[in-house]
Every structure is written in structure tokens, then in C-alpha cells.
Amino acid sequence: MAETVRIVDRPVAAAILHAALRLGYTPLQARIIAGRLSDADVAKLPALLSLQLSGLTPPDLLPDIDIASECIVSAIKQGLPILLISDFDCAI
């Protein structure tokens, strides 16, 4: 039996929305950002939206990085394809 698709509106954090607009994001971008963060994150917003490599989590702090590394090494040794899937809009 097929599942029914359900679309749920995310609450919009008003302070985040206004801060993102002030930072130069378009209304659509600001709405997306405000749907993924809470007003408690407003002071951290510029850092959270930083596009600098220094803003990324160091690889050794990622959960299960050792397991992921072993899988990649194993795939390379066996000549298997590697597929990378990422969620670029996830909240921190």
C-alpha cells in the first residue's frame, strides 16, 4: 500500500528571517534559513551561514568518521563505485 505524502509547513523563526534578510539573502533564501533554525540561533547566524572552509566541522569530529573511512578504503581497494549524497540544507 502506498504511503500518503504529507507536506508539513515548518515554523518560521522571525528573528532569523529578519537577520537573514539584513545579511542580503533573498526572501526565499531567508524563509528557508528561518525554517531550519530557531530564534535562539540569531547571534550565531553569520557564522552558521559562513561559506569559509574554517566554518566546516573538522572531519575527525564527524560521527562515525572511522566507519565511513573504512568503507571508502574498502571500496577503493575492491574497485567499487563510491556515491556521495549530502544534505546541504541541514541545520547545525
Score class of each variant (00 low, 15 high):
Ala15Asp: 09
Ala14Tyr: 09
Tyr25Ala: 01
Ser69Trp: 00
Arg6Ile: 13
Asp41Tyr: 03
Asp66Pro: 08
Leu48Thr: 01
Glu3His: 13
Leu49Cys: 00
Ile33Asp: 00
Gly79Asp: 00
Leu84Phe: 14
Gln78His: 07
Leu49Gly: 06
Ala47Asp: 14
Ala13Asn: 04
Leu83Lys: 08
Ile72Glu: 12
Ala30Lys: 08
Ile72Gln: 11
Ser74Glu: 13
Ala47Trp: 13
Ile76Lys: 09
Pro11Leu: 01
Tyr25Cys: 06
Gln78Gly: 01
Leu21Tyr: 07
Leu21Trp: 01
Asp64Ala: 15
Ala34Ser: 07
Ala14Lys: 11
Leu21Arg: 02
Ile92Tyr: 15
Thr57Gln: 15
Ala30Asp: 09
Pro46Arg: 03
Gly35Leu: 02
Arg22Ser: 09
Ile82Phe: 11
Cys90Gln: 12
Asp64Ser: 15
Thr4Ser: 03
Ser69Arg: 08
Gly55Asp: 10
Leu48Trp: 10
Ile82Asp: 12
Gly35Asp: 06
Arg31Ala: 14
Ala34Cys: 11
Ile16Gly: 03
Ser69Asp: 07
Ala75Cys: 11
Lys77Asn: 04
Ala91Trp: 03
Leu17Asn: 00
Asp89Trp: 07
Ala68Ser: 12
Pro63Gln: 13
Asp66Val: 09
Pro46Gln: 08
Pro59Phe: 08
Ile7Phe: 12
Cys71Pro: 01
Arg36Glu: 02
Ile67Met: 06
Cys90Ser: 11
Val73Arg: 03
Ile65Phe: 12
Val42Gly: 00
Gly24Met: 08
Tyr25Met: 02
Ile33Arg: 00
Ala40Leu: 09
Gly79Lys: 01
Asp64Leu: 14
Ala47Phe: 07
Ala34Gln: 02
Val8Thr: 13
Val5Arg: 15
Leu84Ser: 13
Asp9Thr: 14
Leu28Met: 12
Pro59Leu: 05
Leu53Trp: 10
Leu17Arg: 00
Asp89Gly: 06
Val73Gly: 02
Met1Ile: 04
Gly24Arg: 09
Leu61Thr: 07
Asp60Met: 10
